[in-house]
Amino acid sequence: MIKSKAKLLQLTVTLTACAFLFIPTVMSVMAGVTANYFKGISSGVTLKWVFQVWELYADSIFLSLWLALACLVVTFIIGLPAAYGLARHPGWFSRVLEEFISLPLAVPGLALALALLQLYGTMKGFRTSWTFILVGHVLYTLPFMVRSILAVLAAMDLKTLEEAAASLGASPPRRFLNIVVPNAMPGILAGALTVVTLSIGEFNLTWMLHTPYLKTLPVGLADSYASMRLEIASAYTLIFFIMIVPLLMAMQWASSRAQRIAN
């Protein structure tokens, strides 16, 4: 199979990169179920740490799930009509708006969080509620939802399809529900999975926006890395992997499907 030195070198680089990415992940998983990491896996396999994490951090896991769900709902409600509006109203205004809402992809979360804190930090009721974190998550994930749907909508002849529906007697809202939404489904699905995956893993904004009573999963992770023994930190990471990896795989599948449809 390996024909030349060049191929061998390529394979070596690929495998080294894989090892670099994969070995610490495996170590983390192992450490999470090892009785005593310092002694190694021979000290026995246990779920003790996982249960301990559950006792300590179950709240943070539920908060993250809740936030991801709320974030999905909000990005869907704002993003779907917006993607439709952008697709049907091309022009400088739409381009600027799309570019503007994509700013959170480029600007570090830390800076966005500071900006939100500067403006809304003094509104105590809002500042200390979970909706403040939600705003941050929506800010970060909304462009993914909008672009994912927009890509699918842009690939079909939406205008003519709508004209056809209109000639058959459908009003604008009807056309939106009967024609736009069903045909945008692959984009909506890909967008939704992306939003949930990113929301569950979001740390940069959340760390700045959270309060001691509102810790999300990644905030809890940072907390455990700083203050807990390695086994607990690893077990917590393991729980995170179990949640995020299937989501990520589903997201990649849905995104490539949406892209295939878009082309």
Binding site: T197, G201, F203, N204, L221, A222, Y225, A233, T237, I244
Partner: peptide, 10 residues
């Protein structure tokens, strides 16, 4: 999809 904190831990 790994957040930076998790990568730091790895």
């Amino acid at each position: 999809a790994f957040p930076g904190v998790v990568i730091g831990f790895l």
